[in-house]
């Protein structure tokens, strides 16, 4: 890649101005800041869109009484039962049981502590789901280096 071809297409730079390796006129390598590249933006937004779609399905399932709110909070942190089990210390078969609304409804605040502690939310918040998933992280203006 030549220095002048280093992409400056904006998008998901998120305050992170990266450096790319590129060659100058004499073919010598140098480091050149990059402000985002199209294909990378596509791949990133695809990943976030996928999470959002999963969440929309789960919110509907929670409302229909097919999944517990824990399923929502799990997926919104990009976890599955196995990963949630490793993080919370709750056995996987129990995590899976807690994804059932009837079982989940009977759990005390105390029984929810492993999850609420991990997610940094209260037991009350853990029992509710929003009406729609949060928007994916915003694409930012390429000119600003605003750290989150």
């Amino acid at each position: 890649m030549r220095k002048e071809d280093v992409p400056q297409e904006g998008g998901w730079t998120g305050g992170c101005r990266e450096v790319n390796y590129a060659v100058d006129d004499r073919g010598r390598y140098l480091l050149e800041p990059s402000l985002g590249w199209g294909p990378k933006n596509v791949a990133l937004s695809q990943a976030w869109e996928e999470i959002r779609e999963q969440l929309i399905v789960i919110i509907a399932e929670v409302k229909a009484g097919k999944s517990s709110p824990l399923a929502y909070h799990m997926v919104s942190r990009q976890m599955d039962p196995s990963l949630l089990s490793q993080y919370s210390g709750v056995a996987r078969w129990r995590v899976k049981r807690h994804l059932k609304p009837t079982v989940f409804a009977k759990l005390s605040d105390e029984a929810l502590t492993p999850y609420s502690g991990l997610f940094g939310i209260s037991a009350g918040e853990l029992r509710t789901v929003p009406s729609e998933p949060p928007p994916p992280p915003a694409e930012d203006a390429p000119s600003e280096g605003d750290a989150p």
Binding site: W12, T13, G14, G15, W48, Q78, E139, A147, P148
Partner: peptide
């Protein structure tokens, strides 16, 4: 937490 939210995957 200092990572841009868009990059925060597992």
């Amino acid at each position: 937490p200092y990572f841009p939210p868009a990059y925060r995957f597992h």
